[in-house]
Amino acid sequence: MAHDAHEIKGIGIYLKVFATLIVLTIVTVAVAQVNLGRLNTLIAMLIATAKALVVMIWFMHMNHESTLNRIVFGTAFIFALIFYGLTFMDVDTRINLQNLFINK
């Protein structure tokens, strides 16, 4: 069967990708040890997203994937964000939110 427009390169790229992921893991653990308040979660999420992108682009071969499949995969994140966004919109704007949650 097939195919694949992209030519086969060596395994070097995979090793580099793995090294990058390990470095990013170390960074995220290191940053978590420092208390930066709210920034901590933000930074952790940014690093996680960077790692996720690296996995998607090189391990999952997004760089050679068809536009259609890129759109398909991207759609998942867009709709997950819609799910979160509109739910958050409600929870965030409820009056006396603290009182709604008993046993606080």
Partner: peptide
């Protein structure tokens, strides 16, 4: 995908969310 809250107008959802 953007309209589900109209089932929840009187379910304790926030007024703001209801309007949107």
């Amino acid at each position: 995908f953007l309209v589900w809250g109209h089932h929840m107008f009187v379910s304790g959802q926030s007024e703001f969310a209801g309007k949107i």
